[in-house]
Simulated scan of single mutants.
Amino acid sequence: MQLYNTLSAKERAALIQEAGHERLTISFYKYAHIGNTSLFRNHLFIHWNELDVLGRIYVAHEGINAQLSVPAENFEAFKKHLDTISFLKGVRLNIAIEQDNMSFLKLKVKVRKKIVADGLNDDTFDVTNKGIHVDAEEFNTLIEDPDTVLVDMRNHYESEIGHFKNAITPDVDTFRDSLDTIEAELADHKEDKKLVMYCTGGIRCEKASAYYKHKGFKQVYQLEGGIIEYARQVENKKLENKFMGKNFVFDHRRGERISEDVISQCHQCGIACDVHENCANEACHLLFIQCAECKEKMDNCCSEECKQVHNLPYEEQKALRKGKGASNKIFKKGRSPVLKFKK
């Protein structure tokens, strides 16, 4: 029984291009009690592999967090399968604003301790006592209230390219860092202010809202469906768009444009730019913002040193990497000292 990928990302990309069929990029999450996570993981892989689903899915005892690419022609069959799983029946699917057939190139269903790394001990508070969910229209009204504090629950490299007007954007590398940072910053306003939160698709706010209520915040709200659903509702209902720039997404696209504003700059030359790239040097792979001119000039690398390594023969690059860990750890996105105009 096949429970793993048999094709490389390069081979899969070639097949997708040859087929010429449209694919939909989708995300969803659900907190629920899952007993046998390994069995559930295998069940999903078997059924979704048959439907040519690709993506990154985390399964834990507390639920599921999924980012997927589904052939448009298999979308109804995919939804039908979700409905056969009791806690996923009718689950909200966040469909990407900007579609890309190459958003995911492998199916990865992984068992994790948590579906989001929050660093919290869930036994110490009621995770079901969540904040009030609001739609885009209610959200727009709330954030104009002078008694509202609007908080971005994402990381620095996400909010750098796009965020809501007047939002607090913590300068943090991880979600777990943001929880304590925000609590400390708003410690004097637990009773007199409305705490309104948002994130990419809503999952981080689900846990954060319960945590902040446990910490004494009296009025806690969260944007239902996150920025993805907000953008859809703004378009469908012709609402005022209060989001500036791009929404960072965790697939090969790296971002969806929500407004025409460009609020960040190239980390190498400083011109207005909001395009994330990964350094082409496989020993580095740093995520940073790079304009088209710098990309050409630097061979898609973050530094002259990486450029030199990238231009070496492949076997020499492999020899240099042997026995060494990545030089830029995952949580140092955009913070390398080689980047002159980093945030």
Rank of each mutant, 00 (worst) to 15 (best):
E158F: 09
T124M: 11
E138C: 06
Q222L: 13
K194G: 01
C199Y: 03
F217V: 06
E138S: 08
H156S: 12
L195A: 03
E137I: 07
K130Q: 15
V116P: 00
S178W: 01
N129Q: 14
F217W: 08
F217N: 05
D192N: 15
D173R: 15
D152A: 12
E144L: 13
V172A: 15
P146W: 12
N129G: 00
V127N: 02
P146V: 13
G216F: 10
R112C: 15
E206K: 00
V172Q: 12
G202Q: 03
K190G: 11
Q222S: 12
I203F: 05
K130V: 13
D123A: 14
K215T: 02
T128Y: 07
N121S: 09
E191C: 03
T181D: 14
V151E: 02
K113S: 12
L120Y: 04
I168R: 02
E144R: 08
L186A: 10
N140Y: 09
L223C: 10
E160Q: 12
T174I: 08
K218I: 06
H189V: 10
T200S: 11
G216V: 12
T169F: 05
K215A: 04
H189F: 14
F139P: 05
D171P: 00
E137M: 08
G131T: 06
V172P: 09
A187M: 10
Q219C: 06
I182P: 00
T200A: 11
N140P: 01
S209D: 08
M153K: 01
Y198Q: 03
G201P: 13
D192S: 14
L195E: 01
T141L: 14
K113A: 11
K218Y: 05
S209L: 07
T169R: 03
L120F: 02
M197S: 03
A184C: 04
T174Y: 06
A167H: 06
K193R: 14
F125N: 01
E160C: 04
L195C: 03
F125W: 09
E138M: 10
I182Q: 05
K213N: 06
A208D: 04
L186C: 07
N129C: 04
G202I: 13
K190E: 11
K110Q: 14
D188Q: 11
A117I: 14
K194R: 15
F164R: 02
Y212C: 01
E191W: 03
H133L: 11
D177T: 13
L186K: 06
T124P: 00
G202V: 08
K218A: 15
